[in-house]
Design a protein around this nucleic acid. Structure first.
Lengths: 107, 107
DNA sequence: TCGCTCCATAGCTATAGGTTTATCCATAGC
DNA sequence: GCTATGGATAAACCTATAGCTATGGAGCGA
């Protein structure tokens, strides 16, 4: 089984891809051409990365004539936040258990 | 330059590695042998992944006789939280700008 | 000292995936 | 209809890396 976290981590692991997503977050909707200009890679690479980002739900595409506009879908980051919270939660509960133990020992 | 986010995303992108980190978060400190039992991969692979996790600051090791105990370092997740917040922040500010524009247009 | 256990390292192979070039499709302009 | 442009797809290449086995080395017990 492939979890949502797995998809997100793998998708965001590539620097080029993450940079594309960051630009869409910072600057809002952009066409493939506009994204390619400062991406440092060729247009096919940009298209492919956008496809992967789309598959992960991190971006949305809107067709207008012969150009495609992409925009960030921030909600897709939710599983990432959830995962981080979960890990922190486990840590916290173990910390609480330790605190409890120390209190009991103190009595 | 290799940012902290890059390191974290790449490190956590591998399922085996992430599973190891999750177990350390859930169950606390564990030896390499204990981790290897349910990892589904060989011991050298576990050692290698633990090394990468350590390099990313996600785990800490403690030597005791011939066994090595590993534990999760939750603080290392901070750059991840920061990055997510930053992305959300950009989105929010663009949203605010839009809201502002709509208010002005409404007047 | 001699084995035995625990972990790390080295060497190797195989596969995943990022990049490029070439090409195709659809749309816009003339 | 013809050409040019924006974007997507295909094929080929190549690097990175996850996995294995084999081995080394350090601590423990007899």
């Amino acid at each position: 089984m492939s979890t949502a976290q797995d998809m997100l981590f793998r998708t965001l692991a590539d620097p080029t891809r993450r940079a594309l997503f960051e630009r869409l977050c910072r600057e809002g909707e952009k066409t493939v051409g506009a994204l390619t200009e400062r991406a440092g890679v060729s247009q096919p690479v940009v298209s492919k990365h956008l496809g992967i980002l789309k598959q992960a739900g991190l971006v949305r595409d809107r067709h207008e004539g012969r150009q495609t506009h992409y925009s960030a879908q921030l909600g897709a980051l939710a599983p990432l936040v959830d995962w981080t919270s979960e890990m922190a939660g486990f840590w916290q509960s173990r910390f609480d258990a330790l605190e409890n133990l120390l209190k009991r020992m103190d009595q």
